[in-house]
Simulated assay, not measured.
Amino acid sequence: MFRIRTANKISPIGLDLFPRDRYEVASDLPNPDAILVRSADLHQVEIPETVKAIARAGAGVNNIPIELCSERGIVVFNTPGGNANAVKELAIAALLLSSRKIVDGITWAKTLIDKKDEVPELVEKGKSQFEGPELKGKTLGVIGLGAIGVMVANDATVLGMHVIGYDPYISVDAAWSLSRAVQKADTLESLLRQADYITIHVPLTEDTKGLINAERIKIMKKGARIINLARGGLVHEADVLKALTESRLSCYVTDFPNAELLSNEKVICIPHLGASTPEAEDNCAVMAVQQLMDYLESGNIKNSVNFPHCRLEQRSPYRLLVSNRNVPNMVGQITSILAGANINITDLINHHKDKYAYNIIDTEQEISEDILDRIRKVDGIIRVRAIKK
């Protein structure tokens, strides 16, 4: 029986996928095998020694202590693409909000509530102050061509925009999905020079923190508009606010409000609604649950942020799962121990990601606890687990 602790309210459409004869699911379970989380901050809680995996029903994993998990062999999953359509739709809305002064116009119209019969005339007289350019024919720069970026780029071409995309790490799947109408930028600076609108769809890392800053704003067209629905830290806010004051930028739309941003009339603050649709919550929950089940039952890894993608069809009754530091001769030491115990390997796969590696080893014979302990004692081994089909 696997024990799953939920750290947030998770969509029942996802939770219902857990077979109740094999899984126990609750928010207060002691000694869980895995944790399902949305926004709860796991930096502030003690993660039990029994935890083998954490699945985030969403894309960002800033609320999970990734390095700690990696050192303990805890596989951390996220659900890229599960909320992609929801964020894409909000990005298209943000383009329109940044351009047409819709928010300002609605706010102003509400001030006319006491004018009664004069409202239609006042609207006609006052509407010119909210004039804004159309999107058609303008240039959109999309930074990051993952699941969301590709969808935004494709839909923007349908709106008649000229779209430029930049992503030096674009995946094969994303490239296949990208419209042929989207132009590839060789450098970020090239994109920034050409774009009337810029939308950001990259993860927040040490390399991308403050991606949009004063130096890069100087490259942009005067009056450019920036959309950031990815992560607040991708933008150096002080530099953006200064550029707005100097009219170098026309508008900044963000899904990550704070007091300073809220006080600036050229900033449109959305209250973190990117993935706030029932469909996105359901999709992310389903993906998270399926990935957890596949890992717990079969050892397969898909969409992990700290361990490599690793999948092997199980044809033998016994399976050994080993996570280790990515150093030489680890596979050799593991297989030597198995060979010394007369355990025949029928299939094996080894993949690595940055500092860590993961092995799936199928065998004809069951591996005893004594052999598992010998493997655990090998220098560089992080976690060892055996499962039976």
Rank of each mutant, 00 (worst) to 15 (best):
N8E: 15
N8D: 05
I10G: 00
P12A: 07
I13V: 06
P19Q: 06
R22Q: 08
L36H: 04
A40P: 10
Q44T: 11
V45I: 09
V51S: 09
K52A: 05
K52P: 14
V61F: 07
N63S: 05
I64R: 00
C69D: 01
G73D: 03
K88I: 12
A93L: 03
A94S: 11
L96P: 01
L97N: 06
S99I: 07
S99G: 07
I106W: 12
T107F: 13
A109K: 04
T111H: 08
I113V: 05
D117I: 07
E124H: 07
Q129R: 15
E131V: 14
G144Y: 01
G149W: 11
L159K: 04
H162C: 12
G165V: 01
P168E: 10
Y169W: 14
I170T: 14
I170C: 07
D173F: 15
A174E: 03
D186P: 08
I198K: 00
V202L: 13
E215Y: 02
K222Q: 08
K222S: 07
G223D: 13
I226W: 02
H236K: 10
R248G: 15
L249Y: 00
S250L: 02
T254S: 10
A259S: 13
L262M: 11
V267M: 09
I270C: 04
E281A: 05
A285C: 05
V305S: 10
P308A: 07
P308E: 03
R319C: 08
V327W: 08
V331H: 07
V331I: 12
T335Y: 06
L338T: 02
N342A: 11
I343L: 15
I345C: 04
K355I: 03
T363S: 15
E364A: 03
D370Q: 11
R374G: 04
V378P: 09
I381Y: 00
I382M: 02
